[in-house]
Amino acid sequence: MIKADAKVLLEVRNLSATVAGVEILKGIDLTVRAGEVHAIMGPNGSGKSTLAKALVGHPAYTVSGGEVLFEGKDLFAIAPEERSRAGLFLGFQYPVEIAGVSNSAFLRLIYNTGQGAHGKDELDPLEFDDFVREKMKLLDMDPNFLDRSVNDGFSGGEKKRNEILQMALLEPKLAILDETDSGLDIDALRTVAGSVNRLMTPDNAVVLVTHYQRLLNYIVPDYVHVMEGGKIIKTGGKALAEELETRGYDWVVEEYRKQESRPGSPAYAESHL
């Protein structure tokens, strides 16, 4: 829900980032306020996932320019684990499997680490077990997943549910969900989307990174951004996503190129020097 006076959670200013020396993000600007749902769409290779990973501090992604403020503070001044404790969450496109660590122990550990960081009470294994089972019910998740190793041998859909379960435990201020809809069948998509909607409050926000419009039928975005070539080339509302679904991305890219090549635009100036 858009409220002009809502608190700014995330402010991305002219962000560029490289992977293995190649510039992937080429000047991103994005402002996310409390209560908002943003969708970042775009063709494969447009830089959507890079943006998500750069924000949470994945070591393979190097920030090469610009700045990001999270609740007004320099996000890049703090380590990935501190970003998590500050309330930033990434739902991974490809959640990592960790054989040998039981999911229940892992979930309790991250929950208690978060609680401890905020001076709140930690839960012992028995208390946590009750607590997490309630959360799992809402996600329609089989409690057997507690006894298995983290994501180990989970199907794609089960991994995504496990990501949202972690989100439900950590209650982040800003959740970036990277392709959470991939690997989900329609029923699972509905359940997962329902859980995300329930976690939404006027004080937090969600950024959905997605290739398809499908997820946006269930989690309705306030803003839709189209990424291409490491830039956000168009921003609109929910209707833009529907238009992309029927018309594809090419027309947006075309429109952007025309606009950029108009006399007076920076791209025009560059190419006519």
């Binding site: 684990e81 404790r85 978060g114 960081a117």
Partner: peptide, 10 residues
């Protein structure tokens, strides 16, 4: 990195 992204120290 996955564990750090969930708040665990290095």
């Amino acid at each position: 990195f996955y564990l750090k992204s969930r708040g665990l120290s290095e």
